Computed example of a mutant assay.
Amino acid sequence: MKLTNIKKILGLIIVFSLLMTIVGCAKKDEVTPEPTPSTDVETEEPLAEEPEEPAEVIEIKLAHYAEIGHPADLAANEFALKVEARTNGAVKIIVYPANALGTPDEVLEQNILGTVDMSLPTQGHLSKYSQKFSTVMLPFAFEDADHVYRVLDGPFMEWASPDLEAQGLVFLSNWDWGFRNITNNKRPINTPADVAGLKLRTPPEIQLQAAMEALGANVSQIAFSELILSLNQGVVDGQENPLSVIYYNNVFEAQNHLAITQHVYNSMVNVMSKEVWDRLSEEQQMILKEESTNAGNEMRKMMQEQEEDLIGMLEEKGMEVTYPDKTLFKDMMQPAYDRIAEYAGKENVEYLLKIAEENK
């Protein structure tokens, strides 16, 4: 091959190599576009917003006298939970059971004065401020629990609740406490004659004293805190109370005989300070009313379901149970009615008996 041809070929090779180098450098300088995110990739969920804290938390002290574990205490704690949940923590009810803040009368007085926000007095406690409430405890005024509820939840509270407002209290709902029955250490009670001569303890309410004295009993007023000791020491032969009180306070340890007389009914009444009530919004007031009624109805249900069970449990504890004819006892109550009318007002007694008859 001629030298000139070889030189031409070498020249072409050099030119080609230079061109390839230039192209490679150009490609390195190109900007690679960012990849587009795939729509199949899960994106992180935004964090859920925490519920806002209420601007103001209203704490309500609810004091009552029932023992821990009693249906009233269970209902009170459920009431507190429901109110706090439905108000998103803006209203908190703190429950003080078993006379933790004082006796029932002391707690009601504190409620009226505003140092306790809410309480569960009976009609007997409320009667010190309105004589209308004392008529509920007329002996043998009601046939059964359903009869009681028709009267108390309807015409009675329409008649009596304005008297609570005059004391600075707001009526929320009726709860329960139950019919009262007699226990003693001397003998079974089958007729009114079996009550005659017994030394019986009653609370200070005139209705209970009058009913027992109309049957011929010798009545003593003894503080409930001293009751068991008084029974054990023979200061009194017996006492009268609802079945739940007899069981939950271990009265059976000091008594042999139980008579299902159901001579007087009384119940807890859920009331609260109007000053605290007025601090609540309309919605919060509605919630308190609704949940108080729900709690009261739940307590009533528990009390009724427990009645037969409690009698059986008291029998297991050694008590002899009798079921006297209540009409024989009611026939002896006129002296009691006369005494109660002097205390509560004749017109008040007549009105309670009227609405009781109309709602049988």
Rank of each mutant, 00 (worst) to 15 (best):
K92I: 12
I68M: 08
L74A: 07
E84K: 15
L138D: 00
L138A: 04
P121C: 05
A55H: 02
F140T: 10
L62A: 03
Y96H: 12
P54F: 09
T115P: 00
S127L: 02
A145Y: 15
V151Q: 08
V107G: 01
V83R: 15
L101K: 13
K82S: 08
D117F: 00
A100K: 14
F133P: 07
E59N: 14
Y65P: 00
L74E: 08
I93M: 03
P71Q: 05
Q110T: 01
G114Y: 08
P121H: 11
K61H: 07
Y96M: 01
I68Y: 06
A85E: 12
H125G: 05
Y129C: 05
F140D: 00
Q123G: 12
M137N: 04
T103H: 04
V116G: 01
A75G: 12
M137W: 02
E109H: 08
Y96S: 04
E109K: 14
K128Y: 13
L108F: 05
V91D: 00
E59T: 15
E78D: 13
P121Y: 12
S130T: 10
A66R: 15
V136D: 01
K61A: 10
E67V: 15
I112H: 06
V57N: 09
P97W: 08
T135M: 02
V136Y: 07
T103V: 05
H147T: 12
S130M: 05
N111T: 15
P139V: 09
D146F: 10
R150H: 11
N77H: 14
G102N: 01
Y149V: 14
V95L: 01
S130I: 06
V95D: 01
R86D: 00
A66T: 10
T122C: 03
Y129D: 03
K82Q: 13
K92F: 03
F140N: 02
H147N: 09
L101V: 05
E106P: 03
A76K: 12
V136R: 10
I68L: 06
T87D: 01
E67S: 15
A72K: 14
K92E: 09
I58N: 04
V83G: 11
M118I: 07
V91K: 10
D117I: 01
L138T: 11
V148P: 07
V148Q: 09
